[in-house]
Each structure stands twice: as C-alpha cells, then as structure tokens.
Design a protein around this nucleic acid. Sequence first.
DNA 1: ATGAAAGCGCTAACAT
DNA 2: ATGTTAGCGCTTTCAT
Lengths: 352, 352
Amino acid sequence: MSLASEICQSPATAADVARVAGVSTATVSRFMNSPDLLARDTRQSVLGAIKQLNYRPNLAARNLAGGSTDCLGLILPELGGPFFSELLAGVEETTREAGYHLLVAGTEPHEAFPLVFPSLDRQFVDGTIVFPHTLWPGMIENLAGHPVVLVEASHRSLPTVAFDASVGVREAIRHLVCDHGCRSIACFAGPVGAEASRWREEAYAHELKSLGLEADPDLLIRGEWSECAGMQMFEQLLAQGRCFDAIFSVNDEMAIGAIRAMERAGLRAPDDVRVCGFDDIPLARWMRPALTTVAAPPRTLGRTAAEILLARIAGRSMPSAVRIPTFLITRETCGCREELDNERKTHYETTI
Amino acid sequence: MSLASEICQSPATAADVARVAGVSTATVSRFMNSPDLLARDTRQSVLGAIKQLNYRPNLAARNLAGGSTDCLGLILPELGGPFFSELLAGVEETTREAGYHLLVAGTEPHEAFPLVFPSLDRQFVDGTIVFPHTLWPGMIENLAGHPVVLVEASHRSLPTVAFDASVGVREAIRHLVCDHGCRSIACFAGPVGAEASRWREEAYAHELKSLGLEADPDLLIRGEWSECAGMQMFEQLLAQGRCFDAIFSVNDEMAIGAIRAMERAGLRAPDDVRVCGFDDIPLARWMRPALTTVAAPPRTLGRTAAEILLARIAGRSMPSAVRIPTFLITRETCGCREELDNERKTHYETTI
DNA sequence: ATGAAAGCGCTAACAT
DNA sequence: ATGTTAGCGCTTTCAT
C-alpha cells in the first residue's frame, strides 16, 4: 500500500504530500491551516496523501516560517513539593489539550530567575506563566511585548491569577473564634515580600478586627514556608513567652512544623493550641492529628493561568485578574472531631 | 551604548551579529557551536557584538537547520503527586545546570503517549527521557535515531535508569520475617505490565523463598497504584477470607490505602497487620502510624536519567543501565517504635 | 481555487 | 581561520 512511507526513513514532508496528491506545497499548507479555502476534491486528495504518508508538519519549520512556537513557558520557584507540582500538572493538562508544548524551569535555590527568564522569551515560547515567589523588581522590563500571566502576584498592567484567600481565611478565623472560643490567634506568615502571604495575613487581620479582636503584632511571625521554619517559629514564640490559643499558618508545611514542635515540647494540637493551615496539601488529610486548613486548589490555579495565557495569545479577551475561591476544611487540629464522610472534598481526595 | 538593541524590536539574528562584528554568519554560528575553531580576535569581536545586541540564537531555525535545540523532553505518566514531581524536579535541575531547556508532557489519564511522543521527537528536542508506566508495544519504533533514556523500564537496546529494588526489598522482607516473626506476607502489586512493580514483586518472592517461605499466589493482589486501589485490595483480601500477618506494597500510596481500610474494619497497623510500603513519599514519615517503607529517591532517579541522556547526546559513553540503590526505613507500621533521631535520613527530610 | 517563489534564521559542507 | 552557499520544511504574498 503505502510504499513511500515504508521506504522513507525520514518523516514525510509537505513536498512529499504535494507530489503524491498532485498539488503544490502551498495547497498542502492551506490544507493544514485553512482547509475551507480548498476545493472539495483537492481537500480529499491531500487528505489521502497525508494519511498515506503519515504526514505531520515539522514544528520547527512551521515555527520558523510562521512565527509561533506552539510552546508555553512556566517559571516556578521550585518544581517539587505538593503545591507547585500540582500547579504544574494543571498548567500542563491545559497546555497539552490546546496542542501546545510546555517548557518548565525552576528558579530556586539559585535565584535563577534572571537567568532563566530571558531564555524563555518569544524565541522559545509564545507566552509565559510566571510564579514570582517574591516580585523581582525590574523583572517586568524583561517581559516587553511578550504575553505573560502572573500567578499569586499582582501587577497593574499584567494579567493575574491568584487565590481569593479572603473567603477561606474568614471562614477559618470565624470558626476558630466563634466555634472554638479562641481569643488570641498567632499568625505564621511567609517571608517579607511574598505577596501570597501578605494577602492571607491581611485577611487574617481583617477578620480578627471585624470580630472585635485586634491582631497582636507580637503574634505575627515570619518564616520560609517550610516545616523546618514552622518548627523554629513555634519554638521562638514559646521562648518569647507569648500566649496564644491558636495558630493560623499561611501554608500547611509551616503548620505541620508547628505541630511537630509542639509535640517535642510536650504539647498537643488541638488540646493546647488549635491549628489551621492553608493550601490543603494531601498530607493535611493523612497526618495525625489531621490538619484543619483553608483549601486552595493549585491545579485549578494552574489550569486557569494556562487558559488565560492561551486566550491572550489567541487574541481572545479575558478578565485580566481572576481569583480562585478558597474554603475551610475542618479536621482535627482545630478541635473538631474528624468526620470523614462529612468533610468537603477537595481536588486531592480520591473518591472513596 | 547599544543603539541597535534599543531600536530593534525583533530579536537580533546571526546576520545582525555578523554585520556588527564584521564577520560572516558562519563565523557567528561557529562561535556558538565550536568557539575553539575561531581566532582569538574574531572570538572577541563576535562576543562583543553578541552582548551588544543581546543575541540569542533562534531555536526553531537552529533545529530546522539540523543543529541541536538545547531542549530535552520528559514524558511522564503524570506530573503531579509526590513521586513524579520529585523525579521531574531532579531532571529539571540537571537539565538547567547543563544549559538545556526542558519540555515536559504527561500521558495519563488519556493515554496520550502516542500523541505526545511523536511531537517531542527530534523536531523539538535533542533527546527524551521516557517513563513508560507500562511499556507500550511498538513504542520503540517511534524512537528511531532519537536519543532516549528509559526510566523504570528495561529494553535490550535502550539506555535505562531504574531503582535496584532488590536490596531494599530484601531488607524489608527479612525485617518483617526475622525481626517481627511474620510468616505470611501479602503483596500489593501494580497492574500487569508495570515493570517497576514486577521487579519489586520478584524481589519479594525471591527473598521469601530464600527464607524458606513460599510466596502464596492468593496473597498477591493487583491495583492501580493509588490509595483508593489499596483500600479496595485490602477489602478484597478480607472478603476472600485470606490470612496474612503483613503486607508488602510496591508503592506507598497503596500501603496507605490498605492502612486506611484496616482502620475502617476496626483493625490496626502494626498490631493486626504489619505494613511496609515502597518509595518513601513525604507522607510516609508524617502520617500516623508512620509508614515503614523502602526508600527509593526519585530526585536521584531523575538526575541520573538526565545525566545519562546528556552524556549520550554529547557522545560521551556512559553505562547503559544504571541502578539506583534502595533501602529500608523502619518506622511504626512494621511494629518498630518510631525513633525519630535514629532513622536514616532520606532526601526528603528537612534538616531539623 | 491553486501555483510559484521568496524567505524565516540557522548549520554544514565546500572553498579559500 | 574564515567566507560562500545551499538547503532544512514551512508559510505567505503575489500571480494566475
């Protein structure tokens, strides 16, 4: 049958298709890009030849000639860990479904951002999704004319996707205060300059105030997002002799570290201190005591970021600032009994 | 200063550089690919022009012309989850350090492999790392002439990186049998066709035999790697009325599912059934009871795979089959008391 | 509705 | 040691 395809080692080119179909390469190109311009018969014979030769256009050539790369870039502080990996997976899904490829790069631990970003410019990709753990000043200048969407960061002129921390945090604080009677809630925050953390801190302070409780600045402590940091933060608070009956942590890892440090100190959550995290990483559900936390679905975040970028590239208009809702999941560390079958399901949870 | 670079909208081309440096494009190309061939002075002036124009070669053009793309491809069943994300991070680190870019793609849940792979062929990348959850027959034909390394799979003619399950599993089985007196150990295996699972099963059966215990085929049960599957597998074994005093699971997720199912049934690990997993995902350490498991560091796997691929591309010779060691970490589910400070540290563990 | 031909930016012989 | 030149496979005017 397909003699040519069996003999040829190298993939068929548009020229091959053109020859077999008895048309010109321009017609083949038209078939690929705007079939409507072709006559019925022509379309048929080109299609036949394509199938026969198992033709697939060379992306590099297409790119070189036409200008688009069919590649998206994704820049994340790091690629491992429960949060970023899910975000990445969300971006990749959407990207692949749209027929694009995905180039990824991490910037930690070497602060490789200035290094990594320029190489992802329009020569390589049609657009880039950037998660700037802290917004690097001057960063924006590098982005000139290149479609970009920012994740968990805000900027006056760049499209943005971020969690709407306020709803989930409000639920959390109200739950701690109203349902469990907490009066002084410590806040475990991220490093200075981390916008995602700032939003969550603000929501915490705002809700406290709206309940008639002031956020105590001595009870706000900062760290580097990790379990390790969480442990140190708790120990520091202890060493300072601070009094508090609950902790709200802006991510789950620090909350887990805090709980670990409590255990070391002979304390227990929720009996001695109630704890609420943020993110709902899988661990939150499986650890003991199970972590109460504000769920912020990273896969959705990634998917949305990719959708916005794709829309932007295609010239479709899209809201330039999308917020992904968050919500409280009560488990054990807030003092609720874990009610397995009643808890709200998140994207993580397998259907049991 | 760099007038040209400020005026030009579109990125500088090799021709621009050539003009500014007063050389030909061939010389620019040589500078990029084999600078040693150039005279000292020429090199200097080309370098100057490149910096001045902020020149960076166009990937597509370079690719089309038959050169290298400086891109590597990575194909994974999925990108999220504790295992693959760490593997990915390892690949990306190595890739970036070598000055390459990384294109990633997932193949689940739509079995997108046949779709995704061809588009990552030499049209786009200099080589590809493939993790074939189950080795797709005929897959190899697509790879003709394209540098590939397989992860957790074996093939007669393709370079391969995989865990050496045997050592870790031997430790695990011996520990269960000799230290804890287990006599009938169930095996929670992956789906048929998953090589990684088969290796672990074989190590399990082999070690049982060498201890004078036969592996009971009724106690071998298969599932889809997930917590969910682990639960069902345990329930099925229970429903069948099987007797066993321990479970060896070929990954941690299924082990966790089994433990969850035990809790549902009013049973407890390790009191009723001792459990050992495989992988050592972060959860293993933080869950309660803490999971005893065979540690298999995915980041190392990824890094090694990338190193081999890079070596292959560079024409350097490398062993064509590398095995990454695994080892037992005893925690609570095997019946050992958790000894926090004595346990062997894995790559995951933060320095506390 | 289709063909002819000129690039896109680079590499790789082949010359010199 | 460096320049010349011919493509790589495609898209895209411009003709017809």
